[in-house]
Nucleic acid binder design. Structure first.
Length: 414
RNA sequence: GCGGGUGUAGCUCAGUUGGUUAGAGCAUCUGGUUGUGGUCCAGAGGGUCGCGGGUUCGAGUCCCGUCACUCGCCCCA
């Protein structure tokens, strides 16, 4: 069974792949900081209950996609499949109720036992943001504005659109749910097998089915918008007005629903047409009941998460990596001096690479391969004169520069 | 969990109706140039044809199984 392959649905990240990841994470965190979010890092595993109690017993994530196992101590623990539950748990166990409102940004790996495909891995990475303790639409709008800002800053290729919906409060949702079940039950024969199952488990999910038969049935289904009570309707309107006021374009999509049970009121998704079946690039919503449900004080919350792999695929060209300075000694004694120069330049803030072995030709080839800007050639003549030959690797021009003047001479390449 | 596609050199791929020593480009290494790379020229190394079984005088090629990757369903970020 053991093999030298990575496990299904996992990947090694290196070179440009990890640079893309970093770019997404760092851009997002930088923007989030401007909005007053601070970083939180919760453990990658939690007691299984943390996820079981929050995600809802009917969600596929809980029923078949969690990496759950027993520890040597006999506890059932689970590798986190998403980030919000951990943040909510930290809020409760850390006694943070006194410090609301709180704004958290997080990043890190998540785990779901799914069949991999494009934009879907078993270990994947998310960035996410949460606002805890703010019941008003301002929080919804700030969190969406942050999301839009992050996506804009990443300069994604293709079209990304914001879809928005309201899932109403508990009362509205229960009423609508009953209505939907009644409607679809009467048309059961038109529905796909999947949707017949959903009728029991999660009828709202039928609304965003891709099955053509389902779509036909959905077309005339009662609309959620018509079933929102006054409070929910006002809330939704306030969110929309405020987004419009901030020039954030959105499309109200009545079929937009959430997979996880803890969402209510605002639900939103940024989607793209560039990723095949996995078109959702960032998604979130309001979860006012979550923290109470987990055993904490009643605390409203709203947040989103985005898949770094999906965002990475939409990144246009990476900015070029920093080009190093290559130090090339010729001879043993010269290598010692070169090492000293290398160290001094590094401490002075330069990016410097000195190869480990090889004659000059090999070292030049290597300098070329690592895309060095200049090569500092240090041979016996140079050591005798106290200079380094500084060769510009793009133009081929070379000049001799006294050791003491190197930092100043190279300052443009820092 | 269900359905489709693909597995040949480090990478991208070609390989005729089954036929004898399995090819190319890129990459790598060596030499031309032992203190000058990126260009050029010459040469070299590198393959259990994913794995197992079957059909056949003969299988990279056909059949069955299996594993991996991939796309879609489902689910979701």
């Amino acid at each position: 069974m053991s093999s030298l392959q990575p496990l299904k649905g996992t990947h090694d990240l290196m070179f440009d792949d990890i640079r893309r990841h970093r770019l997404v994470e760092e851009t997002a965190f930088e923007v989030a900081s401007r909005y007053g979010f601070s970083e939180i890092a919760t453990p990658v595993f939690e007691f299984t209950d943390v996820f079981k109690r929050t995600l809802g017993d009917t969600s596929d994530i809980v029923t078949k996609e969690m990496y759950t196992f027993e520890t040597k101590g006999g506890d059932s623990i689970t590798l986190r499949p998403e980030g919000t539950a951990g943040v909510a748990r930290a809020f409760i166990s850390g006694g943070l109720a006194q410090q609301t409102p709180l704004k958290f940004f997080y990043r890190g790996p998540m785990f779901r036992y799914e069949r991999p495909q494009k934009g879907r891995q078993r270990q994947f990475h998310q960035i996410g943001a949460e606002i805890l303790g703010v019941p008003t639409p301002q929080a919804d709008v700030e969190v969406i504005a942050l999301a839009a800002h992050v996506l804009k800053e990443l300069k994604l290729t293709g079209n990304v659109t914001l879809e928005l919906n309201s899932l109403g409060d508990i009362e509205s949702r229960a009423a609508y749910r009953d209505e939907l079940v009644k409607y679809f039950s009467a048309r059961k024969d038109q529905l796909s097998q999947d949707s017949r199952d959903r009728l029991e488990r999660n009828p709202l999910r039928i609304l965003d089915s891709k099955d053509p038969g389902d779509k036909a049935a959905v077309a005339d289904a009662p609309s959620f918008t018509d079933h929102l009570n006054e409070l929910s309707r006002d809330f939704f309107k306030a969110v929309q007005d405020c987004l419009a006021a901030q020039d954030i374009a959105f499309k109200v999509t009545p079929a937009l629903v959430r997979g996880l049970d803890y969402y209510g009121h605002t639900a939103f998704e940024f989607t793209t047409d560039a990723l095949g079946a996995q078109g959702t690039v960032l998604a979130g919503g309001r979860y006012d009941g979550l923290i109470k449900q987990m055993g904490g004080p009643q605390t409203p919350g709203i947040g989103w998460a985005a898949g770094i792999e999906r965002l990475s695929m939409l990144l246009s060209d990476l900015p070029p990596a920093k080009r190093p300075i290559a130090v090339i000694p010729i001879g043993e004694e010269e290598a010692k001096i070169a090492l000293d120069i290398t160290a001094k330049l590094r401490h002075a803030g330069f990016t410097v690479d000195m190869g480990y072995s090889g004659n000059m030709g090999k070292r030049m080839t290597r300098a070329n391969k690592i895309k060095a800007v200049v090569a500092l050639i240090i041979g016996s003549d140079e050591v005798r004169d106290g200079v380094a030959t500084v060769r510009n690797l793009d133009t081929g021009d070379q000049v001799k520069v006294p050791f003491a003047d190197l930092a100043r001479h190279l300052s443009g390449h820092r």
